[in-house]
Write a protein that binds this DNA or RNA. Structure first.
Length: 116
DNA sequence: GCACTGACGCGGG
DNA sequence: TCCCGCGCCAGTG
């Protein structure tokens, strides 16, 4: 079984263009629901070059402060095609990633086979 | 071993 | 909507 960090990186690599995921989703997809905080810590460690696709519950850019400049994450998200609402909130309705059954199955299989 | 801390989530006020 | 408190897990002193 891949470790949590490896799973986080893998899941992030599967997030489609124009879509964003929440820490909670990320943790759950990695097999550890209720560990959103852990997911946040892992992401901040730089395991993935797509950390900007990760947002807090409700689409809040809770990690924006960790980027080089304030507002950078929002810009990266826009550049990716993610729709933002006023106050730098991600419109989860339009741009929140909702894994399809196929994608979920693919993740499960990958984890089981230790793919990375 | 214990207390503190963090890119969090959720329910309440 | 914002702020607070509590729960969660792992790294650090």
């Amino acid at each position: 079984m891949m470790d949590f960090a490896a799973r986080v990186a893998y899941v992030l690599s599967r997030v489609p263009e124009g879509k964003a995921v929440t820490y909670g989703q990320l943790a759950a997809l990695c097999g550890k629901p209720l560990c959103a905080r852990l997911a946040g810590r892992v992401v901040s460690q730089g395991v993935s070059p797509r950390a900007w696709k990760v947002v807090g519950a409700g689409g809040r850019l809770t990690g924006a402060a960790a980027f080089l400049t304030p507002g950078l994450q929002a810009e990266l998200l826009r550049n990716d095609g993610v729709s933002l609402l006023p106050r730098d909130r991600v419109d989860l309705g339009k741009s929140g990633w909702v894994p399809t059954d196929e994608e979920l199955a693919a993740l499960k299989t990958a984890f089981a086979q230790r793919e990375i």
